[in-house]
């Protein structure tokens, strides 16, 4: 305490602390902000690529044609041509890469067909629907209708 301290000394020291805090913040910011941030907008540019390169589970529509030519030809002319193969047979991208890896699902019984064709007052009236209670309740749909080429069974016409 030999030399007199200026009345501003404590303010000077406070300012030094404030400057240090701000500098620390700026330093931390340059360290922690990802390099690709702000490339296109206020987000990580790399995130676009990450979203693009997520794994797929469904193959493209028509991926089945090369191996299952007959079924595909039949189907592509039928009333079911708007129904994608994988809508009934499950996600099959792996199967197109390695046919032994996973097997296509084969819906059995009636429940799966009824998802679309079960009578329902909320469905558009022109869509073909049956009342499962009265429409041959003991038979499977595929007993009479070929799902790859659906039409009314002979004589029902």
């Amino acid at each position: 305490m030999s030399k007199p301290i200026s009345d501003y000394e404590h303010i000077k020291r406070l300012l030094i602390i404030i400057v240090m805090v701000v500098a620390g913040f700026i330093a931390a910011r340059t360290m922690f902000v990802p390099k690709d941030f702000g490339e296109y907008g206020h987000y990580r540019g790399g995130s676009l690529e990450e979203n693009m390169s997520r794994p797929l589970n469904y193959a493209g529509s028509g991926a089945c044609a090369d191996c299952h030519e007959n079924k595909h030809t039949l189907w592509s002319k039928s009333k079911h041509k708007t129904v994608n193969c994988q809508t009934c047979h499950g996600a099959l991208l792996k199967h197109t890469e390695d046919p032994t890896s996973i097997k296509p699902r084969k819906p059995a019984g009636r429940d799966f067909c009824l998802l679309c064709h079960g009578k329902n007052v909320s469905k558009p009236t022109h869509f073909p629907q049956i009342d499962p209670g009265s429409h041959n309740p003991d038979l499977n749909c595929a007993d009479c209708h070929n799902p790859h080429e659906p039409k009314p069974p002979a004589g029902d016409g």
Binding site: I5, D7, E9
Partner: peptide, 10 residues
């Protein structure tokens, strides 16, 4: 902050 100055001015 190591400053003991409590003079009237400060």
């Amino acid at each position: 902050l190591g400053v003991n100055n409590i003079s009237a001015g400060a």
